[in-house]
């Protein structure tokens, strides 16, 4: 699918570098041991800057989903109708990711369904983290 290509910044570069190696990592605060995604300069819980990176299980569940039928993003509109799901991470369900659920036809996603991380190719050849129903 023609994903819009994410542009890493100083904070997010380690995350996207790991994705290129097909690894899903998230930030982890060494002060309070809380994971967070998307990456931020500081911990949301304790405001510490002592943030490390932690491998995840790559397992999750579908929290909710909709179907994009008339997106404001013309690049993605070419794929419509398109699954758009919110997937929680089993390691810490307070963390969630957007996903197009590649491999799942529209209207066949299931709330509560189990998913695992996968890596899809963007138009520029870079990889992006995605989720597949299992």
């Amino acid at each position: 699918m023609p994903y819009i290509v994410p542009e890493p910044d100083a904070v997010s570069k380690p995350f996207w570098d790991a994705v290129q190696e097909k690894r899903l990592i998230v930030q982890n605060c060494t002060a309070c041991n809380t994971m967070q995604y998307p990456p931020r300069p500081r911990c949301q819980e304790c405001n510490s800057e002592a943030l490390d990176w932690k491998e995840t299980s790559g397992k999750g569940h579908i929290l909710t989903f909709g179907i994009l039928e008339d997106s404001h993003l013309p690049v993605r509109a070419a794929d419509q109708p398109l699954n758009l799901a919110v997937v929680t991470l089993d390691d810490d369900p307070r963390i969630n990711f957007y996903s197009n659920l590649p491999g799942t036809p529209v209207r066949q996603a299931v709330v509560g369904g189990a998913v695992e991380v996968t890596f899809e190719e963007c138009p520029d050849g870079s990889l992006i983290h995605e989720w597949r129903m299992i």
């Binding site: 819009i4 290509v5 542009e7 997106s71 197009n100």
Partner: peptide
């Protein structure tokens, strides 16, 4: 076709 800044966490998936 690119998603800079905060949009990198949502625009790629539409």
């Amino acid at each position: 076709p690119k998603a800079p800044g905060p949009s990198q966490w949502n625009n790629p998936w539409g």
